[in-house]
Design a protein around this nucleic acid. Structure first.
Lengths: 149, 149
DNA sequence: TCTAATTGGTTGCAATTGTAACCGTTGATT
DNA sequence: AATCAACGGTTACAATTGCAACCAATTAGA
């Protein structure tokens, strides 16, 4: 006789609910102020924090579909927040990097993010976020391993 | 001088990435087999595990936008997996409950879910999932509290 | 009691998204 | 070298989504 299924302890469900909640919560901090969408912030954040990257790398890093990355990069380029640099050894690849304006925006929103996380940490107690993230890292490792046998 | 911003330890980013990864991973188990979308599975799961609920409750429970719930309920009703029951004391409300066919589908996919989570648990070690979920519960509590002051 | 505000739920419309097919470039096989 | 598969990235198209406006029913307030 199988154990009953408890949705409340089913990890995909729980992760999705929490992610949607926190993501919308933080998006309220930048959406109107910077006219920025979630994929745009994720791309800006990836480039701002890791420096020059290709579109494929941005997608892998933040787990976004490549067409979503492509369109987001086009939007950010149109806004002059990033520029594309060609790779001379492989002309399919485009390196992406933030412009001065992009870096400035990144810096400001990163401040919001720091403040946001600090207030969350204050509400949760020290170490709580680190513990969650350690668990998430394990989960991701297990899933990516399963995906590439 | 503010501490540098580390995207890898920014909780919204980390939660989103992990949630998207695991959600797509599990969706592969039921998408083609049951011709079911993610919102459909979430709604089916909520109703199957909590029993009769209203659309608003489904949305609150799984944190889905109310129009998404509305359309998903319509799809599941069209498939005869749930039926709507009117509430005689408040005729705006519709109670939703699974039909026999809906319960059967729920049971089968819940089996997949149990198996999925068991294999994940095996890869992670016992207690790992519980620890993450305890952390998520705290986060959700803090966020919902912030939202309703 | 009459009106106004609120609530549960639906829908029109525009924006966002994923799928699949594509283009140009590179790598592998021969 | 010639061909073909694979790769990075883009785009046409269809499906999914969210916003805002809406409807009907209920509740609160004057």
């Amino acid at each position: 006789m199988p154990p009953p299924f408890d949705l409340e302890s089913f990890l995909p469900y729980r992760l999705n609910r929490a992610a949607e909640l926190i993501s919308l919560s933080f998006a309220r901090e930048y959406k109107q102020r910077y006219q920025m969408t979630r994929p745009e912030w994720r791309t800006l954040a990836a480039l701002g924090s890791a420096g020059r990257m290709t579109a494929t790398e941005v997608g892998a890093h933040s787990n976004m579909h490549k067409t979503k990355v492509s369109r987001t990069v086009a939007a950010l380029a149109g806004r002059r927040w990033l520029k594309r640099r060609e790779n001379e050894s492989d002309r399919r690849v485009e390196h992406l990097e933030l412009t001065a304006a992009g870096l400035r925006a990144y810096g400001e929103i990163a401040d919001l993010a720091r403040t946001y996380q600090a207030s969350l940490e204050a509400a949760l107690g020290s170490g709580a976020i680190e513990r969650i993230e350690a668990g998430l890292a394990e989960v991701e490792r297990a899933l990516l391993e399963k995906r590439r046998p």
